[in-house]
Design a protein around this nucleic acid. Structure first.
Lengths: 163, 163
DNA sequence: CGCAAACGATTAACATGTTAATTATCGATG
DNA sequence: CATCGATAATTAACATGTTAATCGTTTGCG
């Protein structure tokens, strides 16, 4: 077996370039962890005919009386174009309702319909059950640490952006 | 201000259902943290005309000599349908090449072209620079803790699934 | 008042995520 | 060796992610 330059060239993309292995990539680690957790939620939501994002919208609306579209986008962490399509879907399913704000015809207030609240009431317990299993499996203390670290990470990145 | 049942009904979706506030949702926390980090990578990759996922594929291929499509999907954490489209794109751009495996005509081996290796060599340093900034801003120790917790979380969820 | 800049929301265009179905090939078995 | 179940990869169909452009509306300001 040759162990000369030819081999090295193959292993480092032929340009002497070194990059940490992809397993040590933070975005990848976050994605993998999230997908592991979401798998269970997704399966449950699928049984209710909802996507993860549709459920996020319903959930945010259940926490509040009514919200303008841009506020809803912020709280559900969806980009406006995605939210626009999701609202169209939820409206067609009669789960949400919109009405223009009198003082400013550009704005709209979105709220759950009675049927939307029923769906929330149906799904929320399953969601809570999955959370409880997760807490039990992972440990409350580690979970708390993880939340703190993730918050710190967001802050650190935001602070970096200023510099 | 009334604080009677009507108010409560509005605040809990009218069905006595309680769900933790969405800020305390682990999938949301993971998503937010990931997006905060990815924002910087995405901007850099955009300047190189690559998406996050296209870069993941190139990066995995740079670590290895050649990989079959299914192995590539596993390592780049992409679902086969997504990878299929991405490979079509990268092939058209002449960044990757495929060839059928003789022993099994169903399988294909994918590898970087010389041009693909050049792109890797161009992008990798920018990627490393962002990592270094991140490590500096967040702290090496906390980063290490975070990696460990994320790995534990994956394991805990996987173990749960058995039960 | 009149108009240009700013703003809220949507649409457009393309890439990826997700699940199901399809296609081509392989492999075991009768 | 013929056939059926399993496998690798792709395609299909629909939903969302991402960036840019568009469309009304509003607001600031001369």
């Amino acid at each position: 077996m040759s162990t000369g330059p030819a081999n090295l060239a193959r292993n480092d993309a032929g340009a002497g370039t070194v990059l940490r292995p992809i397993r040590r990539s933070l975005p990848m680690a976050l994605l993998r962890a999230r997908e592991a957790v979401m798998e269970r939620f997704r399966a449950m939501l699928r049984d209710h005919g909802l996507t993860e994002q549709q459920w996020r919208v319903i959930r945010v609306l259940a926490e509040r009386e009514a919200l303008e579209v841009s506020q809803l986008a912020t709280h559900s962490f969806l980009l406006p174009p995605s939210l626009s399509r999701i609202l169209k879907f939820l409206e067609r399913k009669r789960l949400v309702r919109r009405r223009a704000v009198n003082a400013d015809q550009r704005r709209q207030e979105v709220s759950l319909t009675a049927q939307g609240r029923r769906v929330f009431a149906q799904v929320a317990p399953s969601s809570e059950a999955i959370y409880r299993d997760l807490e039990r499996a992972f440990g409350e203390e580690r979970l708390e640490t993880l939340y703190l670290l993730l918050g710190d990470l967001e802050s650190a990145v935001a602070a970096e952006r200023m510099a």
